[in-house]
Amino acid sequence: MNAVAENIPMSREETAEALIRVRGLHKHFGTGERPVRAVEDVSFDIRPGEVLGLVGESGSGKSTIGRCVLRLLDPTRGEVHYGGQDLARLPPRALRPLRRELQIVFQDPYASLNPRLRIRDIIGEALDTHGLHRGEARAARIAELLSLVGLPVDYADRYPHEFSGGQRQRIGIARALAVEPRFIVADEPVAALDVSIQAQVLNLLQELRERLGLTMLFISHDLDVVEYLCDRVVVLYLGRVMEIAPAEALYRNPRHPYTEALLAASPRPDPDQVKARKPLQGEVPSPVNPPSGCVFRTRCPYVQDACASTVPRLKEVAPGHFKACLRDDVPLAAP
């Protein structure tokens, strides 16, 4: 039956078993005739031990996808396969034990920690909920987690307001790791941090990933951060996948006009690389009334008549490198 099964980035060389398999994910907000089409027909795999980047601008659907994958939002349509089950269809009772394995780190380290709880209880709450490390083992586990994220053990007795943004984000990471998850969604975890602190937290994530073999969906609007941390990258625009590729291939050789424009728009901290650029014209259309055919066509410098009538499917343009664009001959300018 699956209409979902038509637009899947399945590589000819695909062998590795996915930990998370997203198929034909749709999320519409609001009912009635004109819902907000936040996510439209998104499919991707996340392999064990992989950090998959989800990049896009405001309204691209990246945070919504992250929440649908964890079933913090109910998808309108589509499947999220994990451990032989479809998370999108599981009843809440069946979902609860799986919550331990699927965790999230939020963007705002000020809003995501309960100001009335001591750090001990913020982290301990996760342990208690899942009945882990009871009694004497609880304090030891909390101490272990604090040192894992690079915080002094005696911080357990303090309250969130005593900490800076970077320290709070470490606490948020410790809370997510407390229950030994197999998979973490990190939703803009460094966006609110100053660059010198951001570097500390990125190093921590990379270190945790190497030590614990974490699998992560890393959501960010920052192309440099995604290039640094992610193995593969999904580029989103107006709720749809534009391109999926290994990070290095995507940044060296973007194949979708939107990816090309996004990379060109990102300012480089190098006065010698400042080029006279022609920025992308116009703005992102409304997700209530997205353009027909390719949603990017209204801003695309390579647009043709056919783009208005056909929704481009993802096709493999190099091993593991997919793009959703009708034109095979673009981008024209070699990087």
Binding site: S196, Q198, A199, N203, Y228
Partner: peptide, 28 residues
């Protein structure tokens, strides 16, 4: 110099393709 060096845009990957640690400025 620390600000320049800790930018992800100025980061590298090792021969296995793993990100080399950023030169973060310690403390706050």
């Amino acid at each position: 110099r620390g600000l320049m060096e800790c930018l992800p845009a100025n980061a590298h990957r090792d021969e296995r393709g793993q990100p080399v640690r950023l030169k973060a400025i310690p403390g706050q």
